[in-house]
Simulated scan of single mutants.
Amino acid sequence: MSTIKAKDGTQIYFKDWGTGKPVLFSHGWPLDADMWDSQMNFLAERGYRAIAFDRRGFGRSDQPWTGYDYDTFASDINDLITSLDLQDVTLVGFSMGGGDVTRYIGHYGSARVAGLVLLGAVTPIFGQAEDYPQGVDKSVFTGIKAGLLKDRAQFISDFAAPFYGTNAGQTVSEGVLTQTLNIALMASLKGTVDCVTAFSETDFRADMAKIDVPTLVIHGSNDQIVPFETTGKVAAEMIQGSALKVYDNAPHGFAVTHQDQLNEDLLTFLKAR
């Protein structure tokens, strides 16, 4: 099993498929690197090196008691990039993963980065703040944490409906729902809860001001988890020269429901680099 050791000793698992220009994927909550299997296989078969890691506390990575904050997540990505000596890497972040690749650029710069892709990402701010009242109300995140602590398995099972839009006309297989629940339950409960605090309270605006690489923003128009109007739309407006694609009626989990469309859009973006 491939791992690197982060600065604090935490073992971070990663998968590394194919050869060619590297693409590094950062997963969403409460998933792990396996969410990217379709995209990784598709790109590796077309001459790219696809790399995805399990965020600390999730999947096959260690489950430390602390460190579930974006400065640490960005540091873990930096440790992975430097350990593998990646150059001209395209960073792809989904949902909360969009935050850690953005924070990586904010803290470590773009010398090794060829491009950035934000998919249904929590940038620039997900939760409500004094100077960002349009963000999601804090009570929503309080409810999520309470649900996880009371009955995580049932909460995640119920969460899948708005995540994949099955309550709004989308269809996913029973296998996908089973896999989603299984992946979520592999994670540290402490890490799962602490990440809710991290992605709901972190302000990425200063990091986004430092983005100076070609950027693609993709969001679903019917995202019930990370609302497009206050995240993806604003992010695309903030990042100079970025391209925005809005998937009509797509849910948050469009990497599954719109798999083929996403794969082709990623390939087109990569070919232009």
Rank of each mutant, 00 (worst) to 15 (best):
L43T: 09
L43K: 02
A44V: 07
E45L: 13
E45R: 10
R46Q: 14
R46I: 13
G47I: 10
G47T: 11
Y48L: 08
R49G: 13
A50M: 05
A50W: 05
A50L: 06
A50R: 10
A50I: 08
I51A: 04
F53S: 04
D54R: 00
R55H: 13
R55G: 00
R56C: 12
R56T: 08
R56E: 12
R56Y: 13
R56N: 09
G57I: 10
G57P: 12
F58L: 06
G59R: 04
G59D: 09
G59F: 01
G59H: 10
S61W: 04
S61I: 05
D62G: 14
D62R: 00
Q63F: 00
W65N: 14
W65T: 15
W65S: 15
D69T: 08
D69G: 09
Y70F: 15
D71M: 01
D71K: 07
T72P: 05
F73Y: 15
F73C: 03
F73S: 02
A74V: 04
S75V: 02
S75M: 11
D76W: 00
D76Q: 06
D76N: 03
D76L: 00
D76H: 00
I77D: 08
N78F: 06
N78L: 02
N78G: 09
N78R: 08
D79E: 13
L80P: 08
L80W: 00
I81T: 12
T82Y: 05
T82Q: 12
T82K: 08
T82I: 05
T82L: 04
T82G: 02
S83V: 00
S83R: 07
L84N: 02
L84M: 02
L84P: 05
L84S: 02
L86N: 10
L86G: 12
Q87N: 13
Q87H: 14
D88W: 01
D88G: 11
D88C: 05
D88H: 14
V89A: 14
V89N: 10
V89Y: 04
V89R: 04
T90E: 06
T90P: 06
V92H: 05
V92I: 15
G93I: 03
G93L: 02
G93N: 04
F94S: 08
S95D: 12
S95G: 11
G97M: 04
G97W: 06
G97A: 09
G97F: 09
G99P: 00
G99C: 09
D100Y: 11
D100H: 02
V101Y: 05
V101P: 00
V101D: 07
T102G: 01
T102E: 01
T102C: 03
T102V: 15
T102R: 03
R103F: 03
I105F: 03
G106R: 01
G106A: 09
G106I: 02
Y108M: 04
